[in-house]
């Protein structure tokens, strides 16, 4: 009898705080597996955001820093410039990366900082309790747009991969999902590539992951099809998965 899946060494053996059915745990595992496979755990510095992933600095088995809301790419810039031999990853949610931290996101890409960004897009503010995010879909209900996002009042969702791929400094931008097994496999490959790019000095790489938030979407946490269906039927229409930029 052979065990097929060891827990990655880059993730500490602790229980994570995420809600049932949340995609963060999946992406944490994928990042850790990639760190193991590329043998970069010892030189990785993890930048944790403000938002649901705020405690990620305690989960990964590597040096870590937790910074102000949205400033991950700036912190990562400082670390990478000061310690060019380290591998720096900034893990961010949609409010963090696409709203309060938009300037840091865009400019770190424009500077082609040799860093890796993992962007969890679940179209909602999670930690604060389900407010409208910059990526909330038109018609999607949130606690700050209880009748659904109305473009006349709230504008339109922001497509980060499309936006960043227009910048010369962006070297790799891919959008994936974790709502099914095929998506998880693709997400891992994308994350691996985003880290390999940093190892090889290729530059700014971002993976946007469409992820479930059953709690704040107001769907059942114990019936996974409700959340996965939302990604499958609604989110991918606005945020089509795919490779948006891949500069060798």
């Amino acid at each position: 009898m052979q065990l097929l899946n060891e827990r990655p060494k880059s993730l500490l053996d602790v229980s994570m705080h995420y809600c049932p059915g949340c995609g963060h745990g999946i992406v944490h595992r994928l990042v850790a597996e990639v760190m193991d496979e590329l043998n970069i755990r010892e030189k990785t510095i993890f930048v944790a955001p403000v938002g649901c992933a705020v405690f990620a600095d305690t989960y990964f088995n590597c040096d870590a820093i937790q910074g102000p809301h949205g400033r991950g790419p700036a912190i990562a810039t400082g670390i990478k410039r000061a310690k060019p031999d380290s591998i720096v990853v900034s893990y961010q949610g949609d409010g963090d990366l696409a709203s309060i931290g938009m300037a840091e996101t865009v400019h770190s890409a424009a500077r082609n900082e040799n860093i890796t960004i993992i962007f969890i897009n679940n179209a909602i503010y999670g930690m604060t309790g389900g407010q409208m995010a910059p990526t909330t879909l038109i018609g999607q209900k949130a606690t700050t747009c209880i009748y659904g996002r109305d473009p006349k009042v709230n504008g339109y969702p922001i497509r980060i991969c499309e936006l960043l791929s227009s910048l010369e400094g962006t070297r790799y931008a891919e959008r994936t999902t974790v709502h099914n097994v095929a998506g998880v496999v693709k997400t891992k490959n994308a994350i691996k590539k985003a880290f390999q790019n940093q190892v090889n000095g290729i530059g700014f790489s971002i993976v946007e992951v469409l992820s479930m938030c059953p709690t704040n979407w107001g769907v059942r946490a114990d019936n996974p099809s409700e959340a996965t269906k939302y990604i499958n039927d609604q989110m991918v229409k606005i945020f089509p998965p795919g490779v948006y930029k891949d500069v060798k």
Partner: peptide, 18 residues
């Protein structure tokens, strides 16, 4: 032993043996 369950589990709660 297809590993699908382990791949999607958000809580690393599943071990699969062959």
């Amino acid at each position: 032993a297809c590993m699908s369950c382990a791949k999607i589990c958000p809580d690393l709660a599943i071990k699969v043996y062959e």
